[in-house]
Amino acid sequence: MMHAKSDSDVTSLAPSSPSRSPKRPVYYVQSPSRDSHDGDKSSSMQTTPVYNSPMESPSHPSYGRHSRASSASRFSGTFRSSSGRKANRKRNDKGWPECNVIQEEGSYDDLYGDTGFSRRCQALIALLGFVLLFSVFSLIIWGASRPYRAEIVVKSLAVDNFYFGEGSDLTGVLTKMLTLNCSLKMSVYNPATFFGIHVSSSPVDLIYSEMKVATGQLKKYYQPRKSHRTVSVTLEGSKVPLYGAGASFAVSDSSGRVPLRLEFEIRSQGYVVGKLVKTKHRRHISCPVVIDSSKNKPIKFKQDSCTYD
């Protein structure tokens, strides 16, 4: 008859049975502490517990689950980075801890140089190119506008007042005095096809023996392109002392014909591209003229009577 074994019997027989529970050697493992990064390695070593039975050994399934759970708990906790700041780890849908993804592709500014400097260079090159192109364009326009000189033709000179007699200058010296008023007419033509001109003149002088006996000034005006205009200038001389030239002038006046010379300069200025591109011309005009004091008719000039320089 079989007798049931009591708990005391099982306990007493378990150590004595070599086939069921062989005696395993006791072992331990030293591993570095996970909480220490910059301390002494020898002080951070920790000892694992001693396992005396298969249930407690690492090969048992329960130990694997326990170790994975403890490892996961360690990963899911907070840890301290190398810079001393704490970061939190999160788990994904599969239970693995998430970590930041390293971005391998970034800016290539360090490889290809300073992009800001290159942009400034490009802007400077573009500005210089624009200035160069505009300069070439302006030079072409200026060259095309050079042939368009204002055409001047002196038409007539009308004497309104002519008086020659004795007098005294401001210092009281007695000498021959001349008073002369006359009006000069001339025609101005602007041949330019794409710009107008501003016309002005130097003082218009009527000269006798290198002495100015009358003078006037053309008032500045604007003349459109491809247009004609007739302008007039009033010349006046009041009580002009002739001094040494008075003797020869008296001889000429006694015959009724006094030789004079008309001299002035016409200036024309055209703005081709605003005030950036402009063209200027000067025409020096000299006309000999003989005034007949016995006649009161305007003196007309022929086409070749004057020189235009």
Rank of each mutant, 00 (worst) to 15 (best):
Arg68Ile: 09
Val136Phe: 11
Phe75Leu: 15
Asp40Asn: 13
Arg146Phe: 05
Gly116Ala: 04
Phe130Lys: 09
Ser57Val: 00
Ser138Pro: 01
Ala87Leu: 15
Phe137Thr: 09
Pro61Lys: 02
Lys90His: 15
Leu128Arg: 03
Leu139Pro: 00
Gly64Val: 06
Phe75Ser: 14
Tyr108Glu: 03
Asp40Met: 09
Pro22Gln: 03
Gly129Thr: 10
Val50Glu: 06
Ser62Met: 12
Val131Met: 10
Tyr27Arg: 04
Lys23Arg: 07
Tyr108Arg: 02
Ser21Met: 05
Ala126Thr: 10
Ser67Lys: 05
Leu124Val: 02
Gln46His: 07
Ser135Ala: 13
Gly129Ser: 12
Pro54Trp: 09
Ser53Phe: 03
Val29Asp: 03
Ile125Glu: 09
Lys94Phe: 11
Met45Ile: 02
Asn92Ser: 13
Ser43Pro: 00
Lys86Glu: 15
Lys94Gly: 07
Gly39Asn: 11
His60Ile: 01
Arg74Phe: 13
Tyr148Ile: 03
Ser43Asp: 12
Trp142Lys: 14
Pro49Lys: 04
Ala72Glu: 12
Ser118Glu: 07
Ser71Leu: 11
Phe79Arg: 14
Leu133Asp: 00
Ser83Leu: 10
Asn100Gln: 14
Gly95Ser: 06
Gly113Ser: 01
Tyr108Ile: 01
Arg120Asn: 07
Gly116Tyr: 01
Asn52Ser: 09
Cys99Phe: 13
Ser138Phe: 09
Tyr28Asn: 02
Asp35Glu: 13
Gln122Ser: 09
Ser33His: 05
Ser138Trp: 07
Ser53Arg: 08
Val29Arg: 07
Glu98Tyr: 06
Arg91Ile: 15
Gly143Lys: 08
Arg65Ser: 15
Ser107Val: 03
Thr48Glu: 06
Asp35Thr: 12
Asp110Ser: 07
